[in-house]
Each structure stands twice: as C-alpha cells, then as structure tokens.
C-alpha cells in the first residue's frame, strides 16, 4: 500500500513537473508541422490520382484544415483537455483507437530489446571488467564496438536473409501469426518468435552501450573502500561482484536505460519498416508523410508520457538499489 502511494505520488509529481514539457512538445510540433509543405488533403487527393476543387474542399473541411491555425490548435487542445486525442479522417478512426492498436507491438518490441540489451550488455560488461586489460576484455571490446557501429537496418536485413530465408527458422516480418487466434503460452511463444529478430536488431547498439557502461562503472565501484573491506573480509570475488559492485554499477545503467527509451522509439521507425511491424514508430513515420497531424501529435504525446513514466520507474528502482539516495530524500 505504502509502495503504491509512493509510486502514485512520484508519478503525480513527475506529471506536474513535466506538464510544461508536454505542452512544449505539442506546441513545437504543431507549429513545426504547419511549416511542412502540403497538407493531408493534398496527400489523399494525390493518392486517389483524381480530384476536383470540390473534392479537395470537402477533404479539407473533414480534416478541419479550412479553419485558421489558432482555431485548429484550440480545437486540438480543448479535445485533449477531455482526454480525446482527436480523429483521423485518413484512417477513418479515432487516434486513441489507432494508437491502441499499435502500442502493444511497439512496447513489446522495445521492452524485449531493452531486456535483451540489459542482460547481454551487463553480462558482457562484467566479463570485460573481470578480465580488464586482458584479451577477453579486448575481444569483447571490439565486439561491442562492432555492435555500436553497424547500421541497425542493415543488420536487420541480413538477419532476415540468414534466419528467415536461408534457414527458415524465424518469420521475415509481422507481429504474430495472422488469424491464428492464440492464447496463453502459445501466444507468448508466437510473439517471441516474431519479435526475436527485430528486438535483436534494435538491441544491438544498446548492448554495446550497456556493456561499456557496466565495465566502466564496475571498475570505478571496484575501487571504492567498501569493496576493499569486503575483499579484506575474504568474500569470494564473484560474491563481491554481484553483491556490491554490480549493485552500484546498475545506477548509471538504469539512468541511461531510462533516457534511451525515447531514442528506442525513434529506432523503432526503421526496425518496424524492415520487419513490417504494425507499430507506433511506423505509424509516426506514415503520419508525417501523410501530414496526419492528429495522429503524429497523439503519438508524440503518448511516447512522451511513456518516457516520463519510465523515468519515474527508474527513480524508484534507483532508490531501491542505492539506500543512500533514499536517505537523502
């Protein structure tokens, strides 16, 4: 109960604190998008390949584009105040529904990628720190540099060629077996099968970052006094690593992971394109191309909220990891 209250309080504070940020994001993007050449009606009329002045005017009025820019902004914000993200005439659906349909795929992709990169990154970092300066450190260092320097979309395409086309082990794209209607464990297994390649492609760069971060902070933490004390007490090196060093090393990593959440959604645009995943990143890209601003603003809003929630969770995690932060509060 107390935890829940703390969590709720932290969330609330974070929200209040970030309200200006959210508003800023909406305003900046709304105004930015006004600068883009062409509007949603141009795109729809262009796609249809035939249009008349009347059909264009009808489209513009459907999108509310016949109103002045301040009026459009006012409509958007007043809708938002009623927790309504608006309607997309292009998709013939509410923005909530559109985002709702896609959020799951993107969240699964991002969480899997995060989990994968954290596990592998920390493991690699520990190994590197353990054998610091010797050949395993060097080899793993080069590996992590490789992960960090290779374009994610290229690796994605190569993974498809190897694992889907040549070996036939994993599907080439999509987010699940279409029309299979699975539940429970088979559904989970199905999702994992479809997400394995995209999540790996997305995780690659972060594996490198976490590995190097783990290595650095473990070396730093290893030099602290309490570790020396523990060593003096005769604890085994692995016990020290796990109990003291890793715990401290996790602090900067969790901070970074929180920061990376927003970046990952950006990376998801490319990965979702390569693996034809029906996710938010791809929707955002399509929305930019189609000048469907309600959808784009909705996605930016939801993803910003996600980033904020992640940061709150990271804060809580850090309190748990480091008692010193708790006492400071």
């Amino acid at each position: 109960m107390k935890i829940l209250l703390t969590l709720g309080g932290a969330l609330w504070r974070a929200l209040l604190h970030t309200l200006p940020t959210l508003l800023g994001i909406l305003l900046i993007n709304f105004l930015l998008l006004q600068l883009a050449p062409g509007d949603a009606a141009d795109v729809m009329a262009g796609e249809s390949g035939s249009a008349t002045q009347e059909s264009l005017a009808a489209l513009r009025s459907q999108f509310g584009l016949d109103q002045s820019i301040p009026m459009q902004l006012w409509h958007y914000l007043s809708n938002l105040a009623h927790f309504n993200l608006g309607y997309s005439p292009r998709y013939g659906a509410s923005v909530q529904a559109l985002i709702g349909q896609r959020l799951g795929t993107t969240l699964t992709l991002m969480l899997l990628a995060l989990l994968f990169s954290l596990l592998l990154g920390i493991a690699l970092g520990m190994l590197m720190a353990r054998w610091q300066g010797r050949w395993p450190d060097r080899v793993l260092y080069v590996c992590s540099q490789f992960f960090y320097s290779v374009p994610g979309f290229w690796i994605g395409l190569m993974l498809i060629v190897v694992f889907s086309v040549k070996l036939g082990w994993l599907p080439t794209g999509g987010s699940g077996t279409i029309g299979a209607d699975l539940h429970g464990w088979p559904a989970l297994f199905d999702t994992l099968r479809f997400m394995a390649l995209p999540a790996s492609s997305l995780a690659l760069i972060y594996i490198a970052i976490y590995a190097r971060l783990t290595r650095a902070s473990m070396l730093e933490a290893g030099a602290q006094d309490y570790v020396r004390t523990a060593e003096a007490k005769g604890l085994s090196p692995w016990a020290i690593t796990f109990k003291h060093v890793l715990r401290n090393a996790l602090l900067p990593i969790t901070t970074m992971a929180g920061l990376h959440f927003g970046g990952m959604l950006g990376g998801a645009v490319v990965i979702e394109t390569v693996f034809s995943l029906p996710g938010l990143g791809r929707l955002a890209y399509d929305a930019v191309m189609a000048r469907d601003y309600n959808v784009l603003l909705g996605i930016l809003l939801i993803s910003s909220l996600l980033v904020i929630i992640t940061n709150v969770l990271v804060d809580l995690l850090q309190t748990w990891l480091d008692p010193r932060i708790r006492s400071r509060r």
């Binding site: 062409g38 509007d39 141009d42 262009g46 000048r291």
Partner: peptide, 11 residues
C-alpha cells in the same frame, strides 16, 4: 516526400 511533391507541382 509525396505531400511536398503534390504541393510543389500542382499548387
């Protein structure tokens, strides 16, 4: 992109 193209050429 497509929207810019349509706007540039036809509008």
């Amino acid at each position: 992109d497509f929207a810019s193209y349509v706007k540039r050429v036809y509008t």
